[in-house]
Design a protein around this nucleic acid. Structure first.
Lengths: 243, 243
DNA sequence: TAGTGGTCTAGACCACAGC
DNA sequence: CTGTGGTCTAGACCACTAT
């Protein structure tokens, strides 16, 4: 192949695989190649760009990883469905978030107990009535001494048997659990909800102010490890980001 | 090379690059290779796995794309910083979301007007007092005739001059804007907030029930294109997902 | 059967780090 | 200078799809 570099050192040129990616993206953005339509084969693009097929392969494989193309072995490469106009919100743990803002985080253990689960909670944990002993913790998280989150958490003893012996002032339940029980999956929901009297008092807020609530169910070792509700006062907390 | 296939056809084997990825991930997860530590070079892994360097290169490059490794040309490959325990929430547009649930979406235009922006809104749009005419629309979105979202949107006339002439019953403002003004960036915030009387009435909810609010600011053509607030009754809406 | 993508090789040249 | 990753080649064999 007679490519840009090597001859006299034109250098600086963008890599060939990137130029091919750019070309494909431009064809799609300009509407030349419509959604669902087949695009030229690897061999054809290799001829067109005067590169090896492996180079084209990398370009198309990356675009496929990025959901821009769909590839079907034996059939061809197709323009993928247009992306949703969607946004991703990243939910981080509260201690990291506060320290990322350069503020002081402090966790205050409010309650730590064995708890006999009711039917609804057992269902969430996928447990039977034979194993209804759970651990329950309530921790208030402060940002510069202002309460910003109440973490109300139930934990499966089978996954974290030593949960009750931890010092949750120095280590958040979250940090402990991710260390002892590597996370397999998370389900979550963000809601708006009025606080109960206890949550309102812990957050030092009026009971007429709503809360932004993140409910989360984490799995580990093939079981439900933890079910938690994170309560935040609406006036002091929001999930933000950009895209 | 004397690899699994080709000899007698063991087949089914996972690809070599995937086995290398798995190996690296396992070393990291087991703690053998710690965060920040250098891992063996491509050449070393190629010898160890008895494959070509390109195969190792693909494995490590993909892990690098996935944020598991950091690679520095001339220096080496290092275990990346441990991921946050974080979750991504996907925010989709309401019409897609409702039809994905197999339900009926309907948009009802409530208001469409020219609006003289106040100082706060001008600041959000990064405009001066010389250009304070904005477009303003209010659309109620129904899922099977139950109101689920009030979309309160301000639009920059410079970006979408024909906004006032659209039929927002047949096409959501969102769909129109993304068509005429390709999106460059989004900023968003999720909040809990009490509805005003008008929002409560449009959503047919009690004014004592909180709302889950998504505020969004979109950019297009180098300008702020649109500032919107999407109000949802807490009892009928939450952002959910899994990971 | 011909054409597609999926993977892999055994070299190669380059830019860059660190010594 | 040596060793690293970044890229690329010109083949190859395979599994799969379409005809």
């Amino acid at each position: 192949m007679s490519r840009t570099p090597s001859t006299t050192a034109v250098v600086a040129a963008t890599p060939a695989f990137q130029r091919i990616k750019d070309h494909v993206l431009q064809q799609i953005q300009s509407g030349q190649w419509q959604q669902g339509q087949a695009i030229p084969s690897e061999a054809a693009l290799a001829r067109q760009f005067n590169v090896a097929r492996m180079t084209v392969n990398r370009a198309l494989r990356e675009l496929s990883d990025e959901q821009t193309l769909n590839r079907v072995q034996g059939s061809g490469t197709f323009v993928a469905q247009q992306k949703y106009q969607s946004t991703l919100v990243q939910l981080r743990n509260i201690a990291d978030e506060i320290s990322a803002r350069g503020h002081q985080h402090r966790g205050q253990l409010q309650r730590l107990e064995r708890y006999k689960a009711d039917a609804a909670l057992l269902r969430q944990f996928e447990l039977t009535a034979a194993q209804q002993q759970l651990f329950h913790s309530v921790v208030v998280h402060f940002e510069n001494d202002v309460p910003i989150q109440v973490e109300d958490r139930y934990v499966n003893p089978a996954v974290a048997p030593d949960y009750m012996a931890q010092d949750f002032g120095s280590q958040t339940p979250n940090a402990y659990l991710t260390r002892v029980a590597p996370l397999q999956g998370v389900q979550y929901a963000i809601e708006a909800s009025m606080p109960g009297p206890e949550v309102a008092e812990l957050l030092r807020m009026e009971i007429t102010e709503p809360c932004l609530v993140l409910r989360r169910c984490t799995r580990s070792q093939g079981q439900v490890a933890s079910v938690s509700a994170l309560w935040h006062p609406a006036s002091r907390y929001q999930f933000t980001g950009s895209f």
